[in-house]
Amino acid sequence: MLTIEDLSVSYGAVQALKGVSLEVPPGRVTAVIGANGAGKSTLMRTLAGLEKPQSGRVTFNDTDITGRKPEDVVRMGIALVPEGRSTIPDLTVEENLKLGGMWRTHAQRNTSLTRAYTLFPVLGERRSLGADTLSGGERQQLAIGRALMTGPQVLLLDEPSLGLAPLIVTQILELVGTMAKDSGLAVLLVEQNATTALRVAKTGIVLNLGEIVKSGPAQEIAQDEELRHAYLGY
C-alpha cells in the first residue's frame, strides 16, 4: 500500500535517515522501533510531507507522493498522529475532531464522527468541553480520532505511548490493532517502547542512527535478545 524506497533525509549537516526502504501493507500494524534519535520521527514526518527528503521515493497505491505538501498527503489518505498528543487545546473536543477531513462531504464526515465516538466513547461524553480539560490518554484518543476523521487508508502513529500509563497504552494499541484487522487500515507505528509495540504488530523493523538494522516478523524481533541489548538498551 505504502512503499518507501531508499529514503534519505538530513537536517543541515546531520543526516537523520540514510537510505531507508520498507513496505507498509494494509490490514495490519507495522512497528518501527529504535532508541531516541534513531530517526523514527523524521521518517514519519517525511511520509506525512512535513519534511522534504533528500533522495528516495515514497509511493502510495502506485502514485509517487515524494515531497508533497502535508495537506495534499492527508487528502490522499495518509494521516499522521504526530508525537506529543497533537490536539489543539483552544478548541473543543468536537471541533478538534471536525478539523480532520474538512474537505470531505457532510455525510462522510458525519459517519466518521459517529465512528470516532463509538471507538472512543469518552470523547462523545466530553464533546463540547475544551480539549485542554482532557487527560493525557484521552488526548491521545482525540488525536487518533482526528486522524481517523480524515478517512485514511494509512495511519501513521508517532510514539503514542509517550508519557502515558502502561495500561492505557496497551488499550489504545490493541484498539488500533483491531481496527487495522477489521477495516483493512495500514498502520505504521513508531515506538521507543518495543515490548508493547511488537505485541500488536505483525512486522517489526529496527531503526538505528537512520538505518534499518533488522526487519522481520514482530515475534522474532521481540525474542532476539542480542538485538534488544545492542539497539534498544534493555
Partner: peptide, 24 residues
C-alpha cells in the same frame, strides 16, 4: 462555520491544521 474552524486551527497550531488537511 468550517472556514472559521479552519482559520482558528491554523492560528493555534498550523502543523496540526495542515496534517488535518487544512490549506493553511
Amino acid at each position: 462555520t468550517s472556514v472559521g474552524l479552519a482559520m482558528r486551527a491554523s492560528a493555534f497550531n498550523p502543523e496540526v491544521a495542515r496534517l488535518s488537511g487544512v490549506r493553511v
